[in-house]
Design a protein around this nucleic acid. Structure first.
Lengths: 352, 352
DNA sequence: ACCTGTTTCGTTAACGTACACGAATATATT
DNA sequence: AATATATTCGTGTACGTTAACGAAACAGGT
């Protein structure tokens, strides 16, 4: 008579009220088969009445299942350390929920080599995961990959750049168009109307361009909407090494020296290097991302603004969203990151 | 022979290796007394070797203890809805960890009535909590309260404004000085050197002023450091109703019409109202906080910049930090919020 | 009526830890 | 040396859930 006497909560209470065993209740909760329609209905009604919420801790303990989440993102190259930040966020989330039976595993691909993406995707599918965090840099390959995930019933979250109609549980990242739009607005504080702007896209893989193009669209849209006349020159640089860039920039500056340069991604530090080398001081410079090399140039005044969209938080929230989803919680399906403006004055307080 | 056969992990494995029972291991882990120095040492060594991490879920399940956290913050007045945001963050955190045996309870005080703070503090101490989240608006009373918390061994986190030397587990909020400093920097984009600036403090309770004064310090420090000459007028408004403010502003504008007005808190919308009423369009305006009434004036151009420091995240992180701390995790002791600049263009994307 | 197969359900041992209870051993007291 | 008192330790039950196993009830076919 010492046992669980009169107390009873949760599954046991439901069982008692329904005059069945906890085994049966368990079956309807996890809708396994093997319970008649009648008793199933009866139990479900009681569950609703009691507003029963399963005890996650007990659940995790009993089913020694481990939730396995895969994260597939670009590797940190020596060309750009950008992906360090999302990775850090992913790791932070992982360590916070490791105690709750969650395992997060990383996979990396080379942004300059599509095949590495395809290979990693295959491995992930083969190993089998409960959830996926993906940075869909290669558009076509990602769509293919995600289709297969859907077949395997693997829910996924996209970060950094979005893909339409993929039935993802969430997109977490910037609104690219708006980001470019804001950049244009900021230029108002740097130059006067009818001055000359140079827009620079630096990226090797053409596939990554849709990312940059959306920013460019936003950038141009601002001037149109505000009826501001500016001359916008544009150059696409397909080689990411400094020498190629330097050559192209030099040419461009001789032809049409701009008053403002807007770099559509984190490579802005290379342009800053060019500025320093050629002692260019009267031209304003804006670009993206809170990277050490960029911050250096922000500090010494070469770069005027950096736009940043919380890469670390993208990783963190990405993992957490998958976890929450797997815990049956509902997750906001679009979580645009704020568009942060970083200046010489506030960079100290910016947390990636 | 069916039982836990050979497997064994955690506490049981330790017991086996030390040739003791799990009871004894349990005693040293939770350092209860009743275990000899010798065996205690032996067990601790094994724990280290194994890098044993207790299973939180099992722990929570077994000890049906519920972690109780109290949050004491200002109530949302009709004068300002600011504290809505931190409250929302607190609630979000609460709902995310409710399943893990955590209960968060709210207490509110009136910013215009010290006694309400004292009363709520007493209630909290009487009821007994495992952790406390506090917005220490009243300096002296807060210090007193926290001293008593220390006596009762209640760990606490401070948000929104800091108090020195309180042995808190964390401060989560703005760096006020830097916040004012940045505001001054932004003014560079709004006015030219040697123009006139008006700084406005609006607050009834003098105790709240140390908060505003730090911003003012930062604001002035910028101009000094950059050797920029500006005329800074300053007015303190102790009545928070619009009529009083309007009268004082009108006087000030007739005497020394400024080119820029900097309001050191969220009451900037009242000044914006004044601008509208008197059709003032050539004077720039900056202030604090992402509130509906402020956003309205940002949209129509009356307010040029809003500075905001993630009030919702302050609440969220505050609760989470206490929780992590109670879970034995180490928590960063100072978590300055980023200083966000909100403009007409990016406010859509700002998440409190 | 019996046997066979299927559906429906109850029982029970885990998951890893906490804690109460009592047994065993050591130390102190006479 | 015998008893009383601390100190140190082992055992067992419980936390709420999962999942394997098997018992009971029912169906269909002969």
């Amino acid at each position: 008579m010492k046992k669980q006497a009169e107390n009873s909560t949760g599954i046991r209470e439901i069982a008692k009220r329904a005059n069945v065993s906890i085994g049966t209740v368990d079956r309807v909760i996890n809708n396994r088969l093997g319970v008649s329609a009648k008793t199933k209905e009866k139990i479900q009604k009681i569950i609703e009445e009691l507003d029963y919420q399963p005890n996650i801790m007990a659940r995790m303990l009993a089913s020694k299942k481990v939730i396995k989440i895969a994260a597939l993102i670009p590797s940190v190259s020596n060309e750009t350390g950008y992906w360090n930040a999302p990775l850090k966020g992913i790791n932070q989330a992982a360590s916070e929920i490791r105690n709750f039976g969650v395992m997060v595993e990383h996979y990396f691909f080379d942004q300059n080599a599509k095949q590495t993406f395809i290979n990693q995707a295959d491995i992930i599918l083969k190993k089998g995961y409960d959830g996926l965090l993906l940075a869909p840099m290669f558009e076509k390959e990602s769509i293919n990959f995600l289709a297969r995930c859907r077949q395997h019933n693997i829910p996924f979250v996209l970060i950094n750049s979005d893909l339409a109609n993929q039935a993802n549980i969430a997109y977490i990242g910037p609104d690219l168009f708006q980001s470019g739009y804001l950049a244009a607005h900021l230029s108002k504080y740097l130059i006067s109307p009818s001055q000359r702007v140079l827009l620079v896209n630096i990226s090797r893989e053409i596939d990554l361009h849709h990312h940059l193009l959306k920013k460019e669209e936003g950038f141009r849209a601002y001037f149109e909407k505000e009826n501001i006349v500016v001359d916008i020159d544009k150059i696409d640089v397909n080689e990411t090494d400094y020498n190629s860039l330097q050559k192209i920039l030099k040419q461009q500056f001789e032809k049409n020296r701009p008053n403002l340069v807007f770099v559509t991604n984190s490579r802005v530090s290379s342009v800053a290097k060019f500025f320093n080398e050629y002692k260019i001081k009267d031209v304003k410079l804006m670009g993206y991302d809170f990277l050490e090399e960029n911050i250096t140039h922000l500090k010494n005044g070469t770069i005027d603004f950096l736009i940043c969209q919380k890469p670390q938080e993208q990783g963190y929230k990405g993992v957490m969203s998958i976890y929450q989803h797997l815990l049956q919680a509902t997750v906001e399906s679009v979580q645009y990151m704020p568009i942060d403006i970083i200046t010489k004055e506030n960079y100290i307080y910016y947390k990636n």
